[in-house]
Nucleic acid binder design. Structure first.
Lengths: 147, 147
DNA sequence: CGTTGACCTTCCCGTCGTGGGAAGGTGCAG
DNA sequence: CTGCACCTTCCCACGACGGGAAGGTCAACG
């Protein structure tokens, strides 16, 4: 199977397949005389594995580890779980962070009239005590947030 | 105020301040004879504005728009709100996506024994019907120990 | 057998926001 | 005057991917 067929069979773009080759993640089992990459079924499965792992948000370093565990039929599931749990904690943290942003924004948007007038609590929040031209002392602290 | 003082006053790194200058977002009001950037209070406030906007997840193009609305004292709050709402929808979509990943992972992790045995529903999910080396018919019992 | 068009190869550039660091000029205090 | 902290510009890197150029290869069709 050449790279185009491997791409169709795995759902991974040829660009990415070459990239995975380059970084040593999935090397083609052979090259033809014309230097074309040759992939066998096992490698197609590895590409599919990577595709699925990426769809779950794993980073390339994590996938590298997962793939080597996948190849090792004697791996302890403990190690797989550890990677998954670490990634899960990371995901949860990022979700919480974005949720905080979204909550703040929802509140600000809710408070904004959204009409022709220039007064806008959204800009007021962004300003956070600093004004573009004139001083406004009215600091309505409705929402506190982190960095 | 030179760039170092502006950085301390705004909480934005000197690298970023130079970057904002480069992309035309916040230009120093003046340069000294020695070509040092000079920032005044207004620009410090703009830098703080950007910092706060970034902390809410706005992209640079969005911030460019927000900043120009902020500078325009006659802007309609409608426009600000539109930008915020668009970003909010984007945030919500990304949160939902990550939440789906996290939910899937949580389920898989929950089903994984996490011990010395190689059987792992996490890898099984990633495999999704593809096997690393030998054809495994279907569901496999937990007591199987490869030899 | 030659042309054609689809495919393959490598190599370089851009993304986006940020940090690192080199090479060289400037400001100020001792 | 020296030394050090600061400033300047310029280039490189990241992660994961896409676009595209320049050139080689393959297969089908006339």
């Amino acid at each position: 199977m050449n790279i185009g067929q491997a791409s169709k069979a795995s759902g991974v773009s040829t660009k990415m397949i070459r990239y995975y080759d380059e970084i040593g993640l999935v090397r083609p089992s052979a090259r033809t005389d014309a230097n074309y990459r040759e992939y066998d079924e096992r490698e197609i499965n590895e590409l599919r594995f990577i595709r699925r792992a990426r769809s779950l948000g794993f980073s390339m370093p994590e996938i590298t580890q997962l793939l080597s565990l996948w190849r090792d039929r004697g791996r302890p599931s403990r190690e797989v779980k550890a990677i998954a749990d670490r990634h899960l904690a990371d995901l949860d943290a990022r979700i919480a962070e974005m949720q905080a942003m979204a909550d703040t924004l929802r509140h600000l948007s809710h408070c904004c009239a959204g009409d022709d007038r220039p007064d806008c609590p959204i800009l007021a929040d962004l300003t956070q005590g600093a004004l573009p031209s004139e001083p406004r002392p009215k600091a309505r602290r409705a929402h506190v947030h982190g960095a």
